Simulated scan of single mutants.
Amino acid sequence: MRDTHGGHPEGDTAPARPSDRREQTRTALLTAAERLWAERGIHGASLDDIAAAAGLTKGAVYSNFTGKTDLLLALMERFTSDPTRTDVCDELRAAEKDGDATGRSSSRHEPDERARQLALLLVEFWLYGMRDYAAGWRIADWYAERRARLASQLDPDDAIAPHERATLTLALDFGLAFQHLLDPARVPADLYKTGKNLMQGRPN
């Protein structure tokens, strides 16, 4: 029987609000872009491909993002703002907290597919920014924000300014992560602990 008070019949679910549907659409597109760009590269997966992978139309992409660069930047922002997401360097940081008596990281921290996917995405972001000037300076701002956040967490050091140490630490993060994921046997994860201690002036 119809509810004469304007509500929904018992057992019915209220329809999703437009804002909820929009957020669900954006999330589906970002998730599809993350997977396809890691698998094929940013230039190897079109907006049509991303829309299809998300079960949506290309129009849904343009109703949420102005284009590929806007979608890319939204994906980068999701990595930055969501504390529950795994960072590509987490596997290396775990070596510092979970080493055995020899200082080696435990076997449960071997790099998994998630870490590899994130590493591939970071390379794609960097390459896209190098090839596209308009996107490049915005991606550079994203890296600058990460450096500034890290610098604010570092203790003062008379030998080198915090922002310089942050820059070198990020270089260590990304460079060592990429080498480790490509060649874990010859670039062990616990090198991150050694490098971090050197950067912070601590004895190994």
Rank of each mutant, 00 (worst) to 15 (best):
D12P: 04
D12T: 13
A14D: 11
A14M: 10
A33W: 10
R35G: 02
L36R: 07
A38C: 03
I42Q: 02
H43Q: 14
G44L: 02
S46D: 04
S46W: 01
D48I: 05
D49Q: 06
I50L: 06
I50T: 15
A51V: 00
A53H: 04
G55Q: 07
L56T: 01
K58L: 01
K58G: 00
V61G: 04
S63C: 03
N64T: 07
N64M: 11
M76H: 02
E77N: 12
D82R: 07
P83V: 09
T86L: 14
D87T: 13
L92E: 08
E96P: 02
D100N: 03
D100Y: 10
G103S: 10
S106W: 11
A115V: 12
Q117S: 03
L121Q: 09
Y133T: 12
A135K: 01
G136T: 00
G136R: 07
R146I: 06
A148G: 08
Q153A: 15
P162Q: 13
L168D: 05
D173N: 14
D173W: 12
G175W: 05
A177Q: 00
A177M: 00
H180F: 02
L181G: 01
L181K: 07
V187Y: 13
L191H: 08
Y192S: 08
G195Q: 08
Q200V: 09
R202T: 01
P203E: 03
P203Q: 03
